[in-house]
């Protein structure tokens, strides 16, 4: 049996390695940084870890309902598919920079896609 995606990516260490790179990209990306500003940075980084753990297929307790609740205030501010795509793009380039092979990145992107409708509250 092959290991889970989370294990193949490197588990919690991979999340820790990715979080600052990813957060920096998001903050520097004018398409989406407004959604991430104005919140305490240490708190925001903790949330990014939760996001990455989930996207890496790691252990988490988030339901689809939680994803709706967690992003509803952003949808009210105009969050749409273009922003979703931008987040996934930043995640992809983060993983490429960390030397993660493309086939694993595709699996991560596929997990993100399963949350699209919930994140966008559709």
């Amino acid at each position: 049996m092959s290991n889970s995606l989370f294990e193949r990516l490197g588990g919690q260490d991979a999340v820790n390695a990715a979080v600052e790179l990813f957060y920096r990209k998001v903050l520097a990306d004018d398409r989406i940084n407004r959604f991430f500003q104005g919140v305490d940075m240490d708190r925001q980084a903790a949330k990014q870890k939760a996001f990455l753990t989930m996207a890496f297929g790691g252990p988490n307790n988030y339901s689809g309902e939680d994803m709706r609740k967690g992003h509803a205030h952003l949808v009210e501010q105009g969050l749409d598919d273009s922003h979703f795509d931008a987040v996934v793009e930043n995640l992809g380039s983060t993983l490429t920079e960390l030397g993660i092979p493309d086939d694993l990145i595709s699996e991560v992107v596929a997990i993100c896609e399963t949350t699209r409708d919930d994140v966008l509250c559709r």
């Binding site: 600052e20 957060y23 920096r24 903050l27 520097a28 500003q37 940075m41 980084a45």
Partner: peptide, 12 residues
């Protein structure tokens, strides 16, 4: 400045 120094590469 916390945000800017983080963007300039300092770890949180």
């Amino acid at each position: 400045t916390k945000e800017k120094t983080f963007l300039a590469g300092a770890s949180l």
